[in-house]
Design a protein around this nucleic acid. Structure first.
Lengths: 245, 245
DNA sequence: CGGTCGGTTGACATGTCTCAATTAACGTGG
DNA sequence: CCACGTTAATTGAGACATGTCAACCGACCG
């Protein structure tokens, strides 16, 4: 089960065996959380780092008027609040959207991990990629039409879930309601629904329940204006190069 | 002139004297750039880290159809592409919007700096705050109305420019065209213009040329739904507490 | 079997973008 | 120091698209 952690971290560099062993030992089996549970609430001060071992979640902010904006997805292998030791206080909340298994690491544990160069590099790299994803989401919301926006996030999910072994070449299980998709890309439920309809009727995606199948991945990526280089996966660079050729 | 660098970095922790000296020595006087110059282009691979000593700039991405999204502002003291050594390639471009003075640090220089704990902390902290700002911008674009959006970015600029000594308690020089503001918050020039008119006629801001004066800062912050805690400045925490009381 | 949540649909109001023209501010060269 | 050209700001009219409101359907759970 903790293979997934390595999966995400090794998207950067393969870890030395002893680092892998240390990581496993420190992380342990974690504790289970139900779907919809809070992991950390907004404004909270926390002295542990939460690591997702299994399941999915998201980062979010809530506005005064109750509106919500999702500002990131959490997948297995994510060190959710690594920066908690540098920043004083959570500027956003985190919640699960499926049942999860989550480890809580103390500052000592983190120091133990980050004293290993390969692990430290992998963790910071992950943090930087998260920031890069935020930048792309900003572009998505600011300058793309609803259906392109939705298509783009679907492309991203496909690629990111592939990395943690939860998607095939052309399909994955969408663990998000249309309301949550809307809170991600800045649309209402109704608009998300119609955007998805558009994608379906254009033959770009097929939906059965929560299962998304993509008949022609290159076509969807083209429609979505999706260039995976912002995810900074080594493998995708080649892939995108050939997709473009 | 390089006092501004320290200003930004010391918003976290005051630096030990020898770290300050090292920083000054490494950074030097920099080289001048004209307004509108590219600092680094999208997709470029760079082996130096650019540091803004003077002037202002922004990070941006350009879409296939020519639309642009600004994804961050650069102010004096910013290490623009600190992560260049961890990530392979710039996922966005950076340009100046005023005349600038910019230093270019080699990997050796960076290693020299990051081997000092206080400096390393300050640099990473800065990186994390940038990510936090991105999250808030996402909320801004996704879930706020145009005039609130514009008001929010003005509040942010006020606070951030105060930190580098370029704003008074209630005013600052806006170094952005309305088109650039629009590219920041996901609006057209026309909508930005009308949003600003709304703020002016509501008495929330006063504009003379590019100078923004805010008669009642608390009122603008309230209108903008602005809570500065996402900037993670120690001082602002108290300020916001009293502003709220 | 009933209730809840998520998805779907329609009608409608509103707001934002587009297009286009006008005015104002600024920098440059004569 | 003024004339001109360029960029930025402002305004108006109209099309279009998204949000709002509300109802309905369907699946899943207890």
């Amino acid at each position: 089960m903790s293979a997934a952690i390595l999966g995400k971290l090794e998207a950067l560099h393969p870890l030395p065996d002893d680092d892998r062993a240390l990581l496993h030992a420190v992380v342990g089996r974690g504790r289970p959380l139900k779907a919809g549970d809070d992991i950390v609430r907004e404004g909270e001060r926390t002295d542990v780092v939460h690591v997702i071992l299994e399941g999915h979640g998201y980062r979010y902010k809530t506005l005064a008027d109750g509106k919500r904006q999702i500002i990131g997805y959490l997948v297995p292998g994510d060190f959710c609040d690594l920066y908690g030791f540098l920043l004083d206080r959570m500027d956003h909340g985190m919640a699960t959207r499926t049942a999860c298994r989550i480890a809580e690491l103390s500052e000592e544990h983190i120091l133990m991990l980050t004293s290993r160069p390969a692990l430290a590099r992998a963790l910071w790299w992950s943090e930087l990629v998260n920031a890069s994803i935020l930048r792309e989401w900003l572009v998505n919301m600011g300058r793309r039409t609803p259906s392109v926006r939705v298509a783009h996030i679907l492309c991203e999910l496909l690629v990111r879930l592939q990395v943690v072994g939860e998607a095939t070449n052309d399909s994955f299980r969408l663990e998000l309601s249309q309301a949550e998709l809307g809170d991600t890309v800045g649309l209402t439920t109704v608009s998300v629904n119609r955007a998805l309809q558009k994608l379906r009727s254009a033959g770009l995606i097929q939906q059965t329940n929560r299962e998304i199948a993509i008949p022609d991945v290159a076509a969807l990526k083209a429609f979505a204006d999706f260039d995976p280089s912002y995810l900074h996966f080594r493998k995708d660079r080649d892939e995108s190069a050939e997709g473009r050729a």
